[in-house]
């Protein structure tokens, strides 16, 4: 009996659904893409995939190369996984995803070792560690295995652009404070480099080490939350403070009156 009543009640909404669906898909696609950059930025808001952030942000070139590596792995893995999502049985899906991601990481690792050896040396073990980056496996599990190819592609692009922008901002601060300026070396030919070091004498070399990395990262996460978030719910109730202060004023006024009468 209840089911029939619910069915009758649900039909008007169901009738309206197909028209809404068309509009929703376009709006959703844009939301999916932009979410990865600001609202759900993997590094600054969701705090996923933090391991490569600190070693990759020691200079701007390192941040760009890490962004390219993560972009390649994330886009390809999301594409492949959403293409094969119907074929893979549910029990062994995690090892399958892991093998796909690991093979992609091996490809990009060997490419970087061959064509940009200096960058590969400075990033060290953190290129193979992209395999266990929480962003990639998390997105594969949560999004790519459930959505269409185009949505997964947009999500991958958005997430990696968010990651790249966060890394770039942190790298700008670290390099400027740590070396006094910016130095851009061509990753494929390390003889060519352009540098602009206006504040070289005032540099703080600790900022390009791990200590400065943690510090800059923490401050930028806090500042990003300050800029993007509006008032936190619950913090606006200042009525208790106001009443406390006004009672205090009354008490002082009474005390003054008492002194005068005495």
């Amino acid at each position: 009996m209840k089911n029939q009543v619910e069915k009758v009640q649900n039909t008007p909404e169901n009738v309206a659904q197909p028209e809404k669906n068309v509009e929703k898909k376009g709006h959703d696609r844009k939301k999916v893409f932009l979410a990865g950059i600001i609202k759900d930025n993997p590094v600054l808001v969701m705090l996923l995939g933090l391991c490569p952030v600190i070693p990759a942000t020691t200079s701007i070139i390192n941040a760009l190369m890490m962004f390219i590596a993560v972009l390649f792995v994330l886009v390809c893995s999301n594409l492949i996984i959403s293409l094969i999502k119907g074929i893979v049985p549910k029990e062994i899906r995690i090892p399958v995803y892991i093998v796909i991601i690991a093979s992609l990481v091996t490809v990009i690792d060997l490419l970087l070792q061959a064509y940009a050896p200096d960058v590969s040396n400075s990033l060290g073990v953190f290129i193979p560690l992209i395999t266990v980056n929480c962003i990639i496996l998390g997105r594969a599990e949560a999004f790519a295995s459930k959505n269409s190819v185009l949505d997964s592609l947009l999500d991958a692009l958005g997430m990696s652009i968010g990651f790249g922008l966060a890394c770039l901002v942190i790298a700008i601060f670290r390099e400027f404070l740590g070396t006094g300026g910016f130095t851009l070396t061509n990753p494929f030919n390390s003889d060519q480099s352009v540098s602009w070091l206006p504040l070289k004498d005032l540099a703080l070399p600790v900022m390009v080490q791990g200590i400065g990395g943690f510090l800059t990262f923490g401050i930028i996460v806090g500042l990003f939350a300050w800029i993007t978030k509006s008032k936190v719910p619950g913090k606006n109730s200042d009525t208790t403070l106001k009443s406390q202060y006004s009672t205090l004023k009354e008490i002082e006024a009474c005390r003054k009156e008492g002194k005068e009468t005495k």
Binding site: K235, D238, L241, K242, Y245, S246, L248, K249
Partner: peptide
């Protein structure tokens, strides 16, 4: 916020 409230009341 505390400073704002305090200065407004007092």
């Amino acid at each position: 916020t505390e400073i704002k409230e305090y200065s407004e009341v007092m």
